[in-house]
Simulated assay, not measured.
Amino acid sequence: MPRSSLFWRIKWLLILFVLLLIDIGPFPLTALICLYIVLFRPRWFKQFVSRLYPQE
């Protein structure tokens, strides 16, 4: 696995962990973010997936 791929995996794992902690509160933030990604397919998400799984 390329080193940059490992960096992005760790970075997004930490982001998801923070969202998990926020989600425990009264406002379900993680579900809204996932719904946004599924409905609108933002460019930043495509770039994230490309960095996470680079084609060789």
Rank of each mutant, 00 (worst) to 15 (best):
Q55Y: 07
E56A: 09
V38P: 00
S50A: 09
Q47T: 09
L6D: 06
W44C: 01
P54V: 01
R9W: 09
S4D: 07
M1R: 05
I15Y: 12
L19E: 03
P28W: 01
R43Q: 05
I24D: 05
L29R: 01
R3C: 12
L14K: 11
F7C: 14
L16S: 11
S5D: 03
D23V: 04
P54Q: 04
L39C: 03
G25E: 05
M1F: 04
W8A: 00
I37E: 02
Q55T: 14
E56D: 07
I15H: 12
C34N: 07
L52F: 10
Q47W: 03
R3N: 15
S4C: 07
L20A: 13
I10H: 14
R51E: 03
T30I: 01
P54M: 02
L52P: 02
P54W: 01
P26Y: 06
I15G: 13
G25R: 06
L52Q: 03
L39K: 11
L16I: 08
M1W: 05
P26E: 10
I33S: 00
S5A: 08
W8Y: 09
F7W: 13
L32N: 13
K46N: 07
R51D: 04
P26V: 11
G25L: 10
R3H: 13
L20K: 14
L6P: 00
C34F: 11
I33Y: 00
F45W: 14
L14I: 12
L14A: 15
W12R: 11
L35T: 05
F17R: 15
F27V: 11
W12H: 15
A31H: 08
I37S: 00
L16K: 11
I15P: 07
D23F: 01
F27D: 09
I15N: 13
W8N: 01
F45P: 02
L19K: 01
L32M: 15
P54I: 03
L6T: 12
L14D: 06
C34S: 13
L39R: 06
L21D: 08
